[in-house]
Amino acid sequence: MEILELIHKQAPITGEQIAEQLGVSRPTIRSDLSLLVMLGHINAKPKVGYFPNQSFREEQAGGLKLKVKQVQSMPVIVRKTATVGDAVVALFVDNVGGLVVADEEGMLLGVISPKDLLKVTLGNPAAASMPVSLVMTRKPQLVTVTPDDDVIEAARKMAENQVDMLPVVVPHENGSDTPSLEVVGRISKTTMTKVLLDAARKW
């Protein structure tokens, strides 16, 4: 990661200096910097800047080297013909941070978050009978990971996009410019918390 390289070479370095050298705005890298601090790769001091965490031993942080396929869970899938009422029940029965909408072949169509359901149900008594296809987030706004992605990449995507769950997908060529995405799992903030706790115990 370019941010880590800059910090290792020029520490201490401020967030503004990092952003300037990368040619981006400070808010653009805020989530990346927060994640690197949280994971122990770097430290930060007010009025000083960011610098490497010399006590962090990456070889002992086995959890951070994991692939998504090693920690992913089974997805909770609903069909696009399911109703908002069905989705609310599935969300709470399975106690998950999001639902995956897929077709009969298991190809990804969309994702439904608790916020999506809250927006449509508040003050709308007819919402329960609406099809989920009207409220789900669709491509290209969907954020996904593959089984071979690093867990750290999944964490970065969650932080940047402020989502609680990511579908784990395998692309399949279908003759069009956009491949179909087969849903094979999910990874959640709960999963990430467990990975970080396991890694912390090894430090």
Rank of each mutant, 00 (worst) to 15 (best):
V143A: 02
P52F: 04
V24P: 14
A82R: 02
H172A: 12
L134G: 05
K80R: 04
K194M: 08
D150C: 02
S55E: 12
V48Y: 06
A154Q: 06
T81A: 08
E173C: 13
G185N: 06
G106K: 15
T137N: 04
A87E: 13
K69T: 03
E153G: 12
A19G: 10
K69V: 05
A127H: 14
K65F: 08
H172M: 15
V88W: 09
S113N: 04
F56G: 00
M1L: 05
E20T: 11
L64M: 04
N174F: 15
K47E: 06
L142D: 14
I3G: 03
Q60E: 12
I29K: 02
A154E: 03
S188N: 01
G110A: 07
K202I: 09
G85A: 01
A154M: 09
L117V: 03
V78W: 01
I112S: 06
A154G: 06
V145C: 03
N174G: 09
A199H: 07
V145R: 01
D32H: 05
K119V: 14
D164V: 09
K189C: 13
V71H: 03
I152Y: 04
V170K: 07
L118D: 14
T193L: 05
Q141E: 11
G97F: 00
K80V: 14
V183W: 06
V132S: 09
T191G: 01
G97T: 00
P46C: 11
T81N: 13
L22Y: 00
V135A: 12
L22E: 04
V195I: 01
A199M: 10
T191P: 04
S180K: 07
S129V: 07
L134T: 12
P125C: 11
L99Q: 02
E104H: 15
G123F: 08
Q60I: 05
R201P: 10
V132A: 01
V100A: 03
L118E: 15
R30Y: 09
S133T: 10
R79K: 15
F51V: 03
S34R: 13
A87L: 03
V168E: 00
K67E: 02
L91H: 05
M74L: 13
A200I: 05
S133C: 07
S34D: 12
T28N: 12
M165H: 00
Q54I: 10
H41G: 12
A126I: 13
L117T: 10
T146R: 14
L91M: 09
T14G: 04
V132M: 10
S113E: 01
R79N: 13
P46L: 12
H8L: 07
S176R: 06
Q10D: 12
N95G: 15
S176M: 04
E59T: 15
S34T: 13
L4F: 06
T191K: 01
L108D: 14
V143Y: 11
T83M: 02
A82Y: 08
M158Y: 00
L118S: 15
P147R: 05
L99S: 02
P52Q: 02
R201F: 02
E58W: 03
A102E: 00
P75C: 12
R138M: 05
H8R: 10
A82M: 10
E173D: 07
F56I: 03
L33D: 04
V111D: 05
I18M: 07
V195N: 00
Q21C: 10
L33K: 05
L142N: 05
A19M: 00
P46I: 15
P147D: 05
G62Y: 08
K189L: 04
G40F: 00
T81C: 08
I3C: 11
A154D: 08
Q10R: 14
P167S: 01
